[in-house]
Simulated scan of single mutants.
Amino acid sequence: MPKWRYIATRLNGDGTETFLNFNVPLSATEVNPVVNGHGGIKGTITPEIASLKTDDGEHLFVPWWTAIYAEEDGHIRGGGILKDYDDEAPKLQLDCIGHTGYLVDTRYTGTKSIERDDPLKVSRHLWDHTQTRPHFNLGIEFAGADKSRDMFIGDDSILPTQTPTKVTPYVLAYYQTHDLAKEFELLASLAPFEYTMTHEWNADKTAIRHILHYGYPRLGARRTDLRFVVGENVVEQPKFDIGGDTYASDVIVLGAGEGSKMMRAEDNDPAPRRLGRDAVIIDKTITTPTEAKKRAAAERKLLAGTADVTEIQVRQHPHAPLGSYSVGDDIRIETADGWSGIRSLWVKILGIQIRPESNVTTLQIMRAEKVSK
Results as ranks from 00 to 15, higher is better:
Asp225His: 07
Ala143Ser: 15
Thr46Pro: 06
Asp225Lys: 08
Ala307Thr: 10
Gly79Lys: 00
Gly78Pro: 00
Ala336Ser: 10
Ala279Thr: 02
Asp156Gln: 13
His210Val: 09
Glu258Arg: 09
Tyr216Pro: 00
Glu357Lys: 06
Gly74Arg: 12
Leu190Gly: 02
Ala279Asp: 00
Ala203Val: 03
Val122Thr: 11
Arg274Glu: 00
Asp150Ala: 09
Ala368Tyr: 15
Trp346Ser: 02
Val24Gln: 05
Met151Ala: 09
Ser113Leu: 01
Glu88Asp: 14
His129Glu: 15
Phe184Arg: 12
Asn202Gln: 03
Ala8Arg: 04
Lys166Ile: 07
Lys348Cys: 10
Asp283Arg: 07
Ser260Tyr: 01
Val31Lys: 03
Val34Gly: 04
Asp250Trp: 07
Ala207Lys: 14
His99Trp: 15
Asp278Trp: 13
Pro2Ala: 05
Trp201Arg: 08
Gly220Val: 04
Asp146Lys: 06
Thr287Asn: 09
Arg218Phe: 01
Phe240Glu: 08
Ala304Tyr: 04
Ile68Phe: 03
Thr246Lys: 09
Glu258Trp: 10
Ile140Lys: 02
Val234Glu: 05
Asn359Glu: 10
Val253Tyr: 04
Val34Asn: 12
Ile349Lys: 07
Ile68His: 00
Ser340Thr: 07
Leu226Ile: 05
Arg343Asp: 03
Ile281Cys: 11
Gly338Tyr: 12
Thr168Cys: 06
Asn12Lys: 13
Thr109Phe: 11
Glu183Gln: 14
Asp150Tyr: 05
Ala296Met: 03
Thr130Gln: 13
Phe228Lys: 13
Gly243Pro: 03
Ser189Val: 05
Arg107Cys: 06
Ala188Thr: 05
Pro160Glu: 15
Ser51Gly: 15
Trp201Tyr: 14
Ala265Asp: 01
Gly351Asn: 08
Ile352His: 07
Tyr102Pro: 05
Lys370Asp: 08
Asn21Val: 07
His210Gly: 04
Ile49Asn: 11
His210Gln: 14
Ile49Phe: 00
Lys112Asn: 00
Arg124Thr: 10
Val31Trp: 02
Gly98Leu: 14
Ser123Ala: 15
Ser113Gly: 03
Asn359Ser: 12
Ser51His: 09
Ala143Ile: 05
Asp155Cys: 08
Thr54Phe: 11
Ala292Arg: 00
Pro63Asn: 01
